[in-house]
Design a binder for these strands. Structure first.
Length: 611
RNA sequence: GCCGCUGUGGCUUAGCGGUAUAGCGGCUGAUUCGUAAUCAGCAGGUCGGGGGUUCAAGUCCCCCCAGCGGCUCCA
């Protein structure tokens, strides 16, 4: 709801002509002196919880009136304050609600201009600093959630099937204990600036874009390369698993019932806008597109489970401004999103297990150690306790279990795997969820041989979590490394060749060309700088293999290579290798991982600076 | 969104009532160098934006924007 509050010497209106949505039995003409005039637009989000929107609006009006010392209030419906209006019925009910509530408070003279009429009006504004105020009201999810009062029960399950008290873990200095402390609301000490925010800019990966909205980033070539390689990694895993890649639109029409219902579950955390005469929203995940696809498909139970996959570029979530930070929490982010249409719950449990394993494996492959929490309703746990114990056993590590007294979202069970940042806070990454609502809502169905209609469970799965958070976790992990680095397959430059003098550049370029042809990202620092400086900067670029190229190398054909992973602080590890041995060394480390060529010029003299 | 802190050239920063420091980076020149910074010169700032106080404002006050910490929240 949008409010424009004007402290006015005088306000008067007169109805002229009805619109299609005009209210009946109205006061056609009225006026008020010394009044707080409240121009008001009821918006579509208000329909999620009209009572709360009304309550907040009334609080706001009473507070303002108190500040101004006025007791006369004119409520004036004014559609032009918003591009995303509620239905006329909802608007009238909200306006009446505000009027009644104010009247009931006593001490106010309350008048209300009629809704849905063309009206003439004149107003004189007092013009003092507080005389014009605007407010935006969003009905609270909080207020709605309070009614439900969901109870949460936490405990730990070990791989051996033992049920343990969470308190046993609270004091431990482990990643798992960090997760438990956060989940149970035990405050950690105040952290400083996160490591990754410095690094994401300092290493020329990704940066804030002040000319966009908060939480929308710009990617520089080195960061773009890492992101693309990660997406290649996930695609390979998904294809291997039998997922089918698709691509669907980023925006949806809120006029569609299934869309607006699904969207309403997530309150105000959406980008909404008007396009022509349609109210639209930006997707917050790829669910919409895939559910629409599934709805339109002819589904045979014989082709289930069916997995659709999309790299949701982007997923948009209008997080509160104070919640947005670095790569950890964004308003536009890249989420690998797979949806599995299952035959039945048993089928869903089997797929869940497979997808959980993919999630754990991503932590190994991407070198971002993960810890796990499994959450489900108490009913689900009572029924499938053995299965829950089995997936913990297969995970091989203790997991935090959270039981909810009733279902509050669309899922009945889900697992969240999290990396832990340098301040001991979780970065929630891979997830698998069992959705029991969406097939109904989007009318996704198949028929049994007997002809019965089935709206089956759907799994949501992000095999790695958002790519931004994966990179966040990697950068945070470097805080504890003596010699920080990226995994070699992700290093923007894998081999840096450093010619000693100008006359060696040509030779270094020849080697570089051969390394590139062999599928390595090698560049040549041909700048007119000292060898010392070029080696230092290769280190600051976290280049895993650095070779100085001079007369010696030209004569012997052997390279002295500094291997970052084997080096200690101030103690570089050097090894003599042939060109082929260098190629093999890189291949050994990157085998089975995706490859893309350099995203920056091969000659460093041609590489521009971004930061 | 709320409370708090911060905001000086591309980056890191000095100055905290008298219109601005330095280093890195950039450019130019010299240097052609063997594993973590070669030397010199030059250019680059309406001190986040707007308003106010003052003879005078990065410096004090107000509003806004952004970043960070905390709260709330996180499908």
């Amino acid at each position: 709801m949008r409010l424009l509050l004007i402290h006015s010497d005088h306000i008067e209106y007169e109805t002229r002509k009805k619109t299609k949505v005009a209210e009946e039995n109205v006061v056609p003409k009225d006026a008020l002196d010394e009044a707080l005039t409240v121009f008001c637009a009821v918006e579509s989000v208000d329909e999620e919880n009209i009572e709360d929107a009304v309550r907040q609006a009334v609080d706001e009006i009473v507070a303002t009136a108190g500040q101004l010392g006025t007791t006369n209030i004119m409520i004036y419906p004014y559609a032009h304050l918003s591009a995303d209006l509620a239905s006329p019925e909802a608007a009238v009910s909200a306006l009446r609600g505000i009027e009644d509530a104010l009247a009931r408070k006593g001490g106010f003279v309350v008048k209300r201009a009629p809704f849905g009429w063309y009206k003439a009006f004149s107003i004189s504004c007092k013009g003092h600093p507080l005389s014009e105020l605007s407010r935006t009201i969003v009905p609270g999810e909080g207020a709605a959630a309070e009614k439900k009062e969901i109870e949460h029960e936490f405990f730990v399950l070990t791989p051996e099937g033992e049920r343990k008290n969470v308190d046993d873990y609270l004091k431990e200095d482990t990643r798992f204990a960090s997760l438990i402390r956060k989940e149970l609301g035990h405050p950690g000490q105040e952290g400083g600036e996160p490591v990754h925010v410095d690094l994401m800019r300092g290493k020329e990966l990704v940066d804030y874009e002040p000319r966009s909205d908060v939480g929308n980033l710009r990617w520089m070539p080195r960061g773009k390369l890492i992101r693309d390689l990660l997406s290649d990694y996930i695609l390979a895993r998904v294809l291997d698993y039998g997922g089918m890649p698709v691509e669907t639109p980023v925006m949806y029409d809120l006029g569609d019932r299934a869309i607006s219902e699904h969207a309403a579950k997530f309150g105000e955390r959406q980008y909404r806008f008007r396009s022509g005469n349609r109210d639209m929203m930006l997707r917050f995940a790829a669910c919409f597109g895939m559910f629409c696809t599934m709805h339109d498909m002819h589904i045979s139970p014989n082709t289930l489970p069916m997995k659709l996959y999309e790299l949701s570029t982007y997923s948009f979530r209008h997080e509160q401004k104070g919640e947005v930070i670095g790569l950890k929490r964004l308003r536009a982010f890249t989420m690998p999103d797979m949806h599995t249409l299952c035959r039945d719950v048993d089928d869903a449990l089997a797929s869940f297990e497979e997808q959980l394993a993919i999630g754990w494996q991503s932590g190994v492959d991407l070198e971002t150690p993960l810890v796990g929490a499994f959450r489900c309703t108490r009913d689900f746990f009572d029924q499938y306790e053995l299965w829950v114990k089995e997936i913990v056993a297969k995970s091989g590590v203790p997991m935090l279990i959270e039981l909810l007294s009733e279902r509050s979202h669309y899922w009945i069970a889900k697992v969240d795997l999290a990396a832990i940042d340098a301040q001991g806070r979780p970065i929630e990454n891979p997830t698998v969820q069992i959705d029991v609502e969406s097939a109904d809502r989007f009318d996704i169905k198949y028929y049994t041989p007997e002809g019965a209609e089935v709206h089956p469970p759907i799994l949501h799965c992000s095999p790695t979590g958002s790519l931004e958070r994966v990179i966040c976790a990697m950068l945070e992990n470097t805080a504890t490394e003596e010699v920080p680095s990226f995994p070699t397959w992700l290093a923007p430059t894998q081999v840096r060749l450093v010619p000693v003098a100008g006359r060696h550049v040509c030779f270094a370029e020849e080697i570089g060309t051969r390394l590139n042809a062999a599928g390595l990202r090698a560049d040549v620092d041909d700048r007119d700088e000292s060898v010392n400086k070029k080696v230092r900067e290769a280190g600051m670029d976290w280049v895993p293999y650095v070779a100085v190229i001079g007369d010696q190398e030209a004569e012997t054909g052997r390279l002295t290579v500094t291997v970052r992973r084997l080096s200690e602080n101030k103690k570089p590890y050097k090894e003599s290798m042939s060109e082929d041995e260098l190629i093999q060394a890189v291949k050994m480390e990157t085998t089975g991982k995706p490859f893309r060529p350099l995203y920056t010029p091969r000659l460093l003299s041609k590489k521009p600076r971004f930061i």
